[in-house]
Design a protein around this nucleic acid. Structure first.
Lengths: 226, 226
DNA sequence: ATTCTATCGATATTTAATTATCGAATACAA
DNA sequence: TTGTATTCGATAATTAAATATCGATAGAAT
């Protein structure tokens, strides 16, 4: 086999592999990506240019093999003895998550939790841009919350239909969550990040992601028991 | 083999198995327990006495085999054709989680997130009892928050040392989280439920459970991308 | 009384995720 | 220039979790 043929074959093989990867990054890897990002951005801000999977793994108390595999899923190639170039790596991970282009979203429920989330700061880092907040409380409507105006919850459906906003953060009390979620779904929302402690039942074409504090606490309880 | 001998052997076998189970309920099962509990309590409130793994599974969109296996881990035995008795099942799950006896805890950081959590209501359901809240803001100290008094954060260490409180809910801004966590650790806290978006570094005898909103959002993003 | 059906629990089997192994590449030092 | 240490990436092995299969049991229907 001569070098030329070999290269061509390798390139095709590589391209196919990259495609395969994009389609199927394991969920646990996806969940680890944000912590990689946080750490990488910290390094970047300190002027570091290269990072090895080994170092990153140590920082995050993970196995280096695991980290290397996770990074491989982004399609970016590392360099022996050096590791990965930080800035392209950040871009590659963000792209894998779809965080490279900001997603517009609305937040429904301007109570303590909603307010806390708006002030969390991290949202923009996640490529999430809250462009409107909705609440039912007449005292809140018209007020500003971290730079975004609070609108009447009755106008949510109109707003979604008009702006084609794909995503909603749902921070209303549990008792209202199902009803409001159905309205969001009817209005054409694509994804709901649900902070209410109930399982929403909607048509399958709406993606629902629930933040389940009880699960997290259950894990803590069981670890404390031992 | 006669019946008597058989029974004795079976009992021993069963006891050993129960012990094994308690030691090693798989983490994914632990994480599912709270959703089982929620649903079971709803049934209980409706006067239902028995529930089958099949029904519970359908309600929660899980495989019935998975649910049956999870329930088996509690040590409670089901009854063919009937399923499991609801009330004992609730107790068995709560016991497996250590939620049968309330754990006293403090909450550190009475901002929006802390306030939201105090109002969440679910805490008592999880066997978690917040007996004091701490904050550094002089305007907040002395105020009440959902029936609990806000104390000066400087007094946290004393409080922990005096009351032997095992657990803390940490809802302070990310910038202060590490420092405060170290103080909690020094004061003798056993477990920290960390809501700040950073990885705390403490001695290994403190159990840290982080609520990582970014992970959850990463999952949503990647599912929306498809 | 007998058959039928829903359910359990135990034991495979399959699938997914993590960890281990090893050869190849490359910077750096001797 | 050569040797060494470090890292990568590919493949293999292991572990953990989810799913499937099947016999046993007990209530309900015939």
């Amino acid at each position: 086999m001569n070098g030329r043929l070999d290269n061509t074959e390798n390139r095709h093989l590589k391209e196919r592999k990259v495609l395969d990867r994009i389609k199927s990054i394991p969920l646990p890897a996806i969940r680890r990506y944000p912590s990689y990002l946080r750490r990488l951005k910290k390094y970047e801000s300190e002027g570091v240019l290269w990072i090895s999977a080994t170092t990153l793994a140590e920082d995050l108390s993970l196995s280096s093999i695991l980290v290397r595999k996770d990074l491989a899923c982004t399609g970016l190639e590392g360099r022996p003895k050096y590791g990965f170039p930080i800035e392209p790596l950040i871009c590659a991970i963000e792209k894998s998550l779809g965080w490279d282009n900001a997603t517009d979203a609305i937040l429904v429920g301007a109570g303590n939790l909603g307010t806390a989330l708006m002030g969390y700061g991290g949202f923009t880092q996640y490529g999430l841009k809250i462009i409107a907040v909705f609440d039912s409380d007449p005292l809140k409507i018209g007020e500003m919350i971290h730079g975004v105006k609070i609108l009447d919850i009755e106008k949510t459906a109109d707003f979604i239909a008009r702006t084609k906003i794909p995503m909603a953060v749902l921070t209303v009390p549990a008792a209202y969550a199902q009803l409001i979620a159905m309205k969001l779904s009817d209005a054409g929302i694509k994804g709901i990040w649900n902070f209410a402690p109930i399982k929403l039942k909607l048509s399958n074409d709406v993606i629902i992601q629930r933040v389940d504090l009880a699960s997290s606490f259950a894990e803590l309880s069981s670890r404390l028991k031992k």
